[in-house]
Every structure is written in C-alpha cells, then in structure tokens.
C-alpha cells in the first residue's frame, strides 16, 4: 500500500477510533490477523520447549515497552525458528514486525522496544523450519504508545536521522552465537501523533526494512513499522565464522537508505 494511503487510513482510524477501553481479551483482531497471516494452520500454545516472550507486566512508558523473545529449542537440533511475527492486538497496525532468521543467526533470540496503544495482548508467533507455528502471548498494561508525543525536539531528532550504531558487549569468539545490538536514530513517527499546539498530525515516517549480514551472509532481516519505538533498537545474535564485517542496512518509509558496519576480528571486543 502506498505510504500516503496508509497514512490516510491510519489517520481515519485514529479519528474514528473509540476511546480506549480496557479489555482482557481481544479475539476479534487476533482472529482476523491470524486468518490473514496463517489461514487455517494450527498454532500451538505449548511453547515451554520452543519460545518464551518476556514483557513487563506494567510498562514504564507505553512508547518504549521492552520485549524479548527467547528461543528454547536445543541448538543444533533438527528444528529451528525461521520467522517470528510480532502482533499487538490493540495497536492501530496489529502486525508490527516480521523477523527472519538464517543459519548464521545462531540463535533466533530478539529484543526490541515497541509502542503499545492500549492495554493489549502482545503475541510472538514463531514459524519453525518444519512449518509448525507456536505462539507466546502476554497481556501488557500500557496505554498511549502510538499517540504519545515522541522526542520533544523534532529538529534535533531529524538532524540525527539515520545515524546508526552497531554494538557488541562481549568478546568475540568464533563459531558460536554472539549478541549484537543495532541502534538506529529515527523518529519512527506513526502519523498518529497530533501536535497539540498546531492540531496537525506529524507525517508518518518510520523504518520499514532492516537487513543485517555478516561477511556477506544474512544474519537477520525484518519488516517493521511504527510499532517499533522511536530510535529503533534490536538485539540479535550472529555466528562469526571468521573475521568479517557486520553490516546493517535500513530503509525507511520515505525510501531513505542508511547503513552501518562493524569490523570484527577474533578476540576483539567492540571494534567501533
């Protein structure tokens, strides 16, 4: 869908949306998303040995709710997580992210921060290499994430737009998963926030695609939207098989491209 259409739809959704109500269950939205994404495929909620979803019971801030997905499948087993779908039922755009993992991911663990518009279920659906689906769902108490004012100083935020940083906080060892962090300076505007002084909505402008490679081989990619918080931040794993370059490429909804890289040598720590 073209960005402008999407923006208008969101605008309409925001204007027409009823005031927030607190509901423990939200089957309608989930049923629709589920049908759209997975048709009639079974989704298991027996997840103890497959995935875990960590979310705060009550968020410190609805616009930056930290979430973590941990994979519990044994490393080197015959099944691995290939995709993780992130669904937040009550958000204006419930499907917020689809993460794709590769053999060089090592572990399909992922951490990021999301906006949560109302008290809502947050769901992580893992698609395994054998095609099976598993879902972890947590209820999160947070409200106002999509329409809360973002960074106060938009001018400074725009000056930083697209600045990126890759960070590794542990010593590099070959052939085992190392956690890396990708930080992107981006307002990730939803298009749903009204400037209460001008009564105008700031235009939607958000990171939509992320591709991370190591030594030219894919490590993690993601299709995301403004569900991800301002200054998108991801922690993920990759397996260095030798010296190389960890490289992240990011595209936003205005088709601006940004990239960052980090040279990795065995035994070194943070190389930038």
């Amino acid at each position: 869908m073209p960005v402008t259409h999407r923006f208008l739809l969101l605008l309409a959704a925001c204007v027409l949306a009823p005031p927030p109500v607190i509901a423990e269950t939200s089957p309608d939205v989930w049923d629709k998303v589920r049908t759209g994404l997975f048709a009639g495929r079974p989704i298991s909620e027996q997840i103890e040995d497959v995935i875990a979803l960590d979310t705060p019971m009550r968020a410190e801030d609805a616009s930056t709710v930290p979430i973590a997905i941990h994979v519990k499948l044994p490393a080197g087993g015959n099944r691995s997580v290939q995709k993780i779908y992130l669904v937040i039922d009550k958000n204006p755009s419930p499907l917020g992210a689809v993460f794709t993992f590769f053999p060089d991911s090592g572990r399909a663990d992922l951490e990021t921060r999301v906006r949560v518009e109302e008290y809502s279920f947050v769901r992580a659906i893992a698609e395994l290499s054998d095609g099976s689906l598993y879902m972890a769902a947590n209820y999160v108490k947070a409200a106002g994430g999509c329409s809360a004012p973002g960074g106060k100083d938009q001018a400074a935020a725009l000056a930083r737009l697209g600045k990126m940083k890759l960070r590794i906080d542990e010593p590099i060892a070959l052939d085992r998963p190392i956690q890396a962090q990708l930080m992107v300076s981006h307002p990730n505007n939803s298009g749903l926030v009204m400037d209460q002084m001008t009564r105008l909505y700031e235009p939607s402008n958000f990171v939509r695609r992320i591709e991370v490679t190591y030594a030219g081989r894919p490590v993690m990619s993601a299709d995301v939207d403004f569900t991800i918080s301002e200054n998108p931040n991801f922690r993920f794993y990759f397996v260095p098989r030798g010296d190389g370059e960890l490289k992240a490429e990011v595209v936003d909804s205005h088709d601006l491209k940004f990239e960052s890289s980090l040279a990795i040598r065995q035994g070194s720590g943070v190389a930038n």
């Binding site: 410190e60 930083r160 990126m164 992107v184």
Partner: peptide, 18 residues
C-alpha cells in the same frame, strides 16, 4: 525510580547516537 532509570537510559542511547 524504575521509570526515572528507563528514561535516563534512553537518554544515554540518544546521546550515543548523536
């Protein structure tokens, strides 16, 4: 206090990105 930490942490990130 947790909220103060949360926001100061985000501020450090923004500073690092700037």
């Amino acid at each position: 206090h947790p909220r103060n930490v949360h926001f100061q942490y985000l501020k450090l990130e923004t500073q690092e990105l700037a």
